Amino acid sequence: MASNGLTNAHSNRVASRDYIRWDAEGVEKIPPNEQEDIQAVAEMINKIQRAQFNSHRHMYSGTHARTQGVVKGNLIVGDLLLHLARSLFSKPAEYPIAMRYSTEPGDPGLGIKILASSRPALDLADAKTTKEIINLCIKYGGDKKELYKHLEARNDTPLQKARDEVRNTHLSSTRQYSQAAYRYGNYVVKYYLVPSSGTQKKQYEETVKSDSHPDDILSEWLKEFHANHDAKYLFQV
Rank of each mutant, 00 (worst) to 15 (best):
E94S: 15
N135V: 02
K29L: 13
K209R: 14
K202W: 09
T67N: 08
R86N: 13
I38H: 06
T130V: 12
Y182P: 03
S55T: 14
E43M: 03
G142A: 00
A127P: 14
Q236E: 13
K113I: 07
G62N: 10
S172Q: 11
T199N: 05
R13V: 11
A65C: 06
V71Q: 12
N12I: 02
G78A: 09
N228V: 11
E152I: 00
E165C: 05
V237D: 08
D18V: 05
H56N: 14
S173K: 05
D211K: 07
H64D: 08
V77M: 02
A227V: 07
L193D: 08
S172Y: 09
N8S: 00
I133C: 02
H83C: 09
V166K: 12
L193S: 07
H150D: 07
A42W: 11
K202V: 00
D18E: 14
S87E: 15
A181C: 08
F235H: 02
L147R: 01
P31A: 06
T207L: 02
T199W: 04
K113P: 00
M99G: 06
D156P: 05
L124I: 09
G109Y: 05
A121T: 14
R119C: 04
D156W: 00
Y191A: 14
Y148N: 12
L88G: 03
T7A: 13
A98C: 11
G106Q: 04
R175V: 06
S102P: 00
G78Y: 04
S178L: 08
D107Y: 13
G69F: 09
M44N: 07
T103Y: 07
L147S: 04
T174E: 09
V188N: 10
I45W: 04
E28G: 08
A98G: 14
L171R: 01
H83S: 13
K91N: 10
E94G: 02
T174V: 12
R183E: 09
V208I: 15
A121F: 14
S3R: 01
D23A: 08
E43C: 09
L75I: 03
N12A: 11
Y187L: 03
S178P: 09
G109T: 10
P32C: 07
S196P: 01
A9I: 05
T207G: 06
D156Q: 10
E152F: 06
A162E: 03
L88S: 12
L6E: 14
Y101M: 02
G62E: 10
S3L: 10
L222G: 05
K209A: 08
Y204I: 08
W221M: 09
Q52M: 11
K128S: 15
Q236N: 12
A65T: 08
I138Y: 07
P195Q: 05
